[in-house]
Write a protein that binds this DNA or RNA. Structure first.
Length: 1060
RNA sequence: GGGCCAUUAGCUCAGCUGGUUAGAGCGCGGUCCUGAUAAGACCGAGGUCGGUGGUUCGAGUCCACCAUGGCCCA
């Protein structure tokens, strides 16, 4: 016996019970060990999830992919590692810990103690790693959770040391400086990434127009504009666009230059210049290049000796500011880049807290954000001020503390992307080569990554913070730089402080205690205090998790590298994880670190909008798992095209529940109900060879499904397999079971019934195996009740997740049969449409249905379908419509895909000629296989297409050459049958309402008019058999019967049912 | 400024190498089916396939330009 099936279960509750059951029966452990002895391996690398916050529903998308493909490969017998990873170092974590303590600057951290701070960061990571693990388990993700890797591990950090040493050996590691966005409150730089995501706010600043007097041209000035007056003290150049036109204008005693485009040609007015002025000369920007000018603050000691030049720059815009751009390389990114191009001096006016340093006179010791007024006063005093104007713009702010950012030039460490290796090949080229060898899914990933690789600058790997990889770089005052490649090397080279480090993780502050002797001059050298870019931590994972430094020749690393597959959310990863892995792998092994990558887009809310806590449209993973369940969530993600954003929500989840989960559940419930009534048990054998069309067809569809799902998953595709499963479940429920119902409930226990059970059981069990990677909970639920081990067959594994992946048997696939069955469905569908037009319900039997099939009707095929169509439509006979019947009217058209290539421009003439012909004659001729004369052309029968057109006056429906016409003339006898069937329907509903079991025998009481009496006299046996009524009593129902007054097609009937 | 992608029903999206009447799901209205079915079937409403040109016998599909949106880079 199968366990009875709850008809309307609480699916999320079933999932929670199943989690417990898996635990109690050590199923996950058995799964992880299932292929330990296998020869074939499938290597998956899990991209580390940031262990800094709980998991969100957006993580569930990627993690479901990870789980689906690992489960699929497990069932196929591949040995795997099942290792999950956590990203555990970096500024994100520092920020959260700072927040928890209310810290607002690095000074607070220093005061708190770097060691304590780092320990708190580590603890935070542990806490969220545990929470994410728990959530992942709830999602149904099966990994070796006790073997997760953490990027803050010693092994991970030391592997990066090895990598950096290799870079240094190759000459690719260097110290450079760059201008970067800087928060003066936090006293740290921010990456562009941090600014782009949420770092701008609209604000108003006082901008200033000022005059820069040209040295070569007395009494003439450049007019420049800036929104950041504090940077003027660092001005060294003014940029013009060489191709744009500039104007020299006279205004009173002043003569200055600005972009011509800022002066309106018609009105002669300007949005920049106030008052009257006149244009003296127009000239191209290039004519100004090379001139020098007096800077606005040349009197300050820091500006001593600086020559201010006019330079050319193509990025200068002619309609913002004045068309002449103030350049301060110490205070801006583009400015700094120009300083390299034009060899401009770099003046750095402020320290890490945004305060002017010594040498800036009245500005020294002032905060950069507070000096606009004194600067304006000074300019005014010097006669350089032209105008002050409020300016509204989007300005970058610190995403942590909202401070306005400044730009500072700071020393950072870089990996050189264009330095050549021993064979003259730069790192960038190695990465490009590796990128081409990778299978990018979706395909545009390749172009995306290549685009990034072509454009990327050298990799800045340092960050002036506390909790992260300790960069093992030891620069000596003598100019020599030592890089340490392992902990052993550090111990060997240590000349001081090793005892303070020993026993600690390679983090600040402990590792900073160790000093080594310079390999060049022997002086004691300290580590730089910078920590590493966190993408180093993730990029080394394909190496660190495989113990690369120890098993490089043979063993673990050798066996599992490169990974067969990774999958992550695309946004960001091209220049983050994918990039870091490519770079590090190019340095260490000059090859691709993974063979295929599946990227997916982002999770949006149900309306397609970004989820935000503040918008109130965010859905928490725990809540979603609780309300919709993990399986529908997984399915919702897996059925979606990974290239586009998915709209996630409860309505979408409910759709999955209704369409897939419930439909499958009801089919399963149907099977169990009747199998239990009949005492049918699975014996573990293959399904019985059946001569029943429905059984053979369902098996054919099943094997096609296995083939499709398998090939989809083989190519890392889930949407197609998921949709194929959906359509199979639909066919299973709404055609196979619907059409087979009578086979299950008929009273004879014959071979046909046996093969129906055997077929349906086999298909359900196979289906849940195919679905198990997608919906592990539901699949297990069904498998546990259906698998043959329950009836004593020994061969069934204890869990669906320990089963072998089903094999598609090509010989079971009968495409002709599949087509025929689709034709039957189509005829049934058209027949229902025709009945609906005629207003005759299906319960009313009809004498005849006339059909026409496109092409040559195959009599045998028709015979095979006939029974299905007749039963489905409740019709007595099916007749083909004669081609010349007046039930049909035709339209003929040229078969364009055939005629087009053959006749080209003559297609138009053929079309016209065909229009002249009598369609019926053409149809008859084509039916006889004769050629068709159309004007000057002679066409083969297959060069003409025939369609039937709607005939008025018949209850017909048609589609794609299929026509169904129903005979609406209903003889008296059939009307009585219809009435009988209606009564059966009413009694069945009453049985259900009365709560009777399906197999309960009853007595039915009835009272009605003469028509009813006649119908029940003629069709009493039918009614009794259908309703399991031992007898039909024409009598008032007794008090204990379930009784209802019914209006049956206009006849008042009293019906009562009583269990015997 | 450069690159990539998109634009098809109220919403979310299919539409293969150009070919006959452009589809599905959701939502809405109606009818029907059902002792597995909080499911399903049928009917209905809803489209200048972003725009303009071009190639072609024929363009939602190919090409060019433009517009709008998104992503990436500068």
């Amino acid at each position: 016996m199968f366990d009875d099936v709850e008809p309307k279960p609480d699916f999320p509750a079933l999932e929670r019970e199943r989690l417990q059951w898996w635990q109690e029966h050590s199923i996950v452990a058995q799964y992880l060990q299932r292929n330990d002895a296998a020869d074939k391996r499938w290597s998956f690398i899990d991209g580390p999830i940031t262990a800094n916050n709980p998991m969100g529903v957006h993580h569930a998308w990627g993690r479901t992919y990870k789980d689906v493909f690992q489960r699929f490969k497990t069932m196929q017998g591949y040995k795997q590692r099942y290792q999950n990873g956590f990203d555990c170092q970096g500024l994100w974590i520092e920020v959260e810990v700072e927040r928890a303590h209310g810290f607002s600057s690095k000074l607070d951290i220093e005061a708190f103690g770097v060691g304590k701070f780092v320990e708190e960061c580590k603890a935070r990571v542990q806490r969220f790693a545990a929470q994410i693990t728990e959530q992942s388990v709830r999602l149904g993700q099966w990994m070796d959770w006790d073997d997760s890797y953490f990027t803050n591990s010693d092994e991970n950090n030391y592997a990066i040391w090895h990598f950096l040493k290799q870079c240094h050996t190759n000459g690719w590691l260097y110290k450079g400086n760059d201008s970067m966005p800087w928060c003066p409150r936090c006293a740290t730089g921010l990456s562009n990434m941090e600014i782009v995501t949420e770092g701008y706010r609209e604000m108003t600043h006082r901008s200033v127009y000022l005059k820069l007097p040209l040295i070569e041209r007395e009494d003439e000035s450049l007019l420049v504009w800036t929104t950041t007056p504090w940077t003027l003290a660092a001005n060294v150049a003014a940029a013009v666009h060489p191709e744009l036109t500039y104007a020299r204008v006279r205004q009173g005693d002043d003569v200055f230059y600005l972009s011509r485009a800022l002066i309106d040609a018609d009105s002669g007015k300007s949005k920049v210049l106030q008052g009257e002025f006149e244009i003296e000369v127009e000239l191209p920007g290039r004519d100004l290049v090379g001139l020098t000018y007096r800077g606005p603050f040349d009197e300050l000691p820091a500006l001593d000796g600086v020559v201010h030049r006019v330079i050319e720059w193509d990025e200068v815009s002619e309609d913002e500011g004045t068309g002449i751009v103030h350049i301060a390389p110490g205070c801006g990114q583009e400015d700094f880049a120009l300083s390299k191009q034009f060899d401009l001096p770099v003046i750095m006016p402020i320290d890490q807290f945004g305060t002017y340093t010594e040498g800036f006179g009245f500005l020294s010791d002032c905060f950069a954000g507070d000096v606009a007024s004194p600067i304006f006063d000074s300019l005014k005093e010097k006669g350089a001020l032209y105008r002050i104007q409020d300016y509204v713009h989007r300005y970058p702010i610190c995403w942590r503390c909202d401070s306005e950012l400044v730009f500072r030039v700071v020393d950072e460490w870089y990996i050189d992307m264009d330095g050549a290796d021993g064979e003259g090949k730069p790192l960038r080229e190695h990465m490009v080569d590796a990128t081409h060898k990778i299978n990018w899914i979706p395909e545009f990933g390749l172009a995306r990554e290549l685009d990034w690789l072509r454009n990327m600058d050298d990799w800045m790997i340092s960050k002036k913070r506390y909790y992260g990889l300790a960069l093992p770089i030891y620069p000596c005052a003598c100019g020599n730089v030592d890089v340490i490649g392992s902990v052993d090397e550090l111990q060997e080279r240590a000349v001081e402080g090793w005892e303070k480090y020993e026993g600690h993780s390679p983090h600040r502050p402990w590792v900073d205690e160790v000093r080594i002797a310079c390999s060049s001059c022997g002086e004691k050298v300290s580590r730089i205090t910078d920590v590493g870019n966190p993408w180093l931590d993730a990029g080394i994972v394909p190496y660190a998790t495989l113990d690369y430094t120890h098993t490089r020749e043979a063993g673990l690393w050798h066996d599992w590298f490169p990974a067969d597959f990774i999958t992550e959310s695309f946004p960001g990863q091209f220049r983050n994880w994918f990039y870091a892995m490519l770079a590090m792998s190019a340095v260490l092994e000059q090859r691709e670190p993974f063979r295929a990558v599946l990227g997916h887009a982002q999770v949006r809310d149900e309306k397609g909008e970004e989820m935000h806590k503040s918008k109130g449209n965010a859905i928490w993973f725990d809540e979603a798992a609780d309300k919709m369940g993990a399986d529908p969530m997984r399915w919702l993600f897996m059925r979606h095209n990974p290239a586009t954003n998915v709209n996630f929500g409860y309505a979408a989840g409910d759709e999955v529940r209704r369409n897939l989960v419930l439909t499958l559940w009801n089919t399963y419930s149907f099977f169990v109900t009747y199998a239990n009534i009949d005492g049918w048990q699975p014996d573990g054998a293959a399904p019985l060879a059946s001569d029943n069309e429905l059984d053979r067809w369902l098996l054919s569809e099943l094997h096609q499904l296995i083939a499709d799902v398998t090939s989809g998953l083989e190519s890392y595709e889930t949407a197609m397999p998921a949709r194929r499963v959906e359509s199979f479940v639909e066919l299973l429920s709404n055609w196979y079971v619907r059409r087979s119902r009578r086979r299950f409930w008929k009273s004879e226990d014959d071979g046909d019934k046996q093969s129906a059970y055997s077929t349906l059981h086999h298909c359900l069990v196979t289906l849940v195996k195919l679905m198990s990677p997608f919906t592990p909970f539901l699949s297990e639920e069904l498998y546990q009740n259906l698998n043959s081990a329950r009836s004593g067959a020994e061969d069934a594994p204890p869990s669906v997740h320990l089963c072998d992946w089903p094999d598609a048997d090509a010989s079971a696939i009968d495409e002709t049969l599949n087509d025929e069955m689709r034709t039957a469905m189509r005829l049934a569908s058209l027949g229902r449409a025709a009945r609906s037009k005629a207003g005759i319900k299906v319960r009313q039997p009809l004498q005849c249905v006339y059909v026409r099939l496109p092409g040559k009707p195959d009599d045998d095929a028709l015979r095979r379908l006939e029974q299905q169509v007749l039963e489905e439509l409740n019709v007595r006979e099916l007749a083909l419509i004669a081609e010349d019947s007046d039930l049909l009217q035709y339209d003929i058209k040229p078969n364009l895909p055939v005629l087009g290539p053959k006749y080209g421009k003559d297609v138009g003439k053929i079309r016209a000629a065909l229009a002249e012909l009598d369609p019926l004659n053409v149809v008859l001729a084509a039916g006889r296989g004769e050629e068709i004369a159309a004007g000057e052309f002679t066409l083969a029968p297959d060069e003409v297409l025939v369609t039937t057109v709607e005939q008025e006056g018949y209850a017909s429906a048609q589609e794609s050459g299929f026509v169904v016409v129903v005979d609406t003339d209903v003889p008296e006898s059939l009307l009585d049958e219809g009435l009988a069937r209606e009564i059966v329907h009413r009694i069945q509903n009453m049985r259900r309402d009365a709560g009777f079991a399906i197999s309960d025998r009853i007595t039915t009481y009835w009272q009605g008019d003469d028509d009813i009496r006649r119908v029940l006299a003629a069709h009493g046996d039918y009614v009794r058999a259908e309703t399991l009524s031992e007898s039909l009593e024409e009598a008032p129902p007794p008090d204990d019967a379930h009784t209802e007054q019914q209006d049956v097609d206009g006849h008042a009937v009293t019906l009562g049912v009583r269990k015997q």
